[in-house]
């Protein structure tokens, strides 16, 4: 079951990297098209911001999988042995429950956006849920990783070469 989670996380992450490439290319296209051909696009700015949102949400599960979300671990690091393990389990569980709750809230908001047909404010207005949907998606995958750490703390220790990209 965790295999499936890892596959989904990796797929989302790769898509996120592709979106970063797309952002770079769109901006360069806009520069060339506006400066050299005097024909600025109407879609580039909006598309870049939509992609930025999706890129962020799609990469956070991978950051969670490699346990690299930033935390102020000064006190936990000072602990040892059993108490440290318990503390870490509790922290992972808390992070998972909180993120899961927010994922649920974001999902119900996205459903509301879908039902009421609200569009984005951009020059190219698209249904807002298209972008908003990435928030519950990213958070849900992230939640599962933290719950997994709570059950199996060893999963949180990712070797440097896997987490170090």
């Amino acid at each position: 079951m965790f295999r499936l989670l890892d596959v989904l996380t990796r797929a989302a992450f790769y898509l996120s990297a592709v979106l970063l490439l797309a952002i770079t290319l769109i901006y360069c296209f806009e520069i060339v098209s506006r400066y050299f051909f005097n024909s600025p696009t109407v879609w580039s700015t909006d598309t870049v911001t939509y992609f930025l949102g999706a890129m962020t949400c799609l990469a956070i599960p991978e950051v969670a999988r490699t346990n690299r979300h930033i935390a102020v671990t000064v006190f936990v690091d000072a602990m040892h042995g059993k108490s440290k393990e318990v503390a870490q389990r509790v922290l992972h569980l808390t992070a998972g429950v909180v993120a899961g709750g927010v994922a649920w809230i974001a999902l119900s908001e996205t459903l509301r956006l879908y039902k009421s047909g609200i569009l984005t404010l951009g020059t190219i207005a698209v249904p807002k849920w298209w972008i908003s949907a990435f928030i519950p998606l990213g958070l849900a995958l992230l939640t599962l990783h933290y719950l997994r750490f709570a059950i199996d703390p060893t999963a949180a220790h990712v070797p440097a070469e896997q987490g170090g990209e």
Binding site: F13, T56, E62, I70
Partner: peptide, 16 residues
């Protein structure tokens, strides 16, 4: 490709 993956994950970490 490695640079893109790294760029995406680090900025996601910060933007989060």
């Amino acid at each position: 490709w490695a640079a893109l993956r790294s760029g995406a994950s680090i900025s996601a970490m910060i933007l989060m």
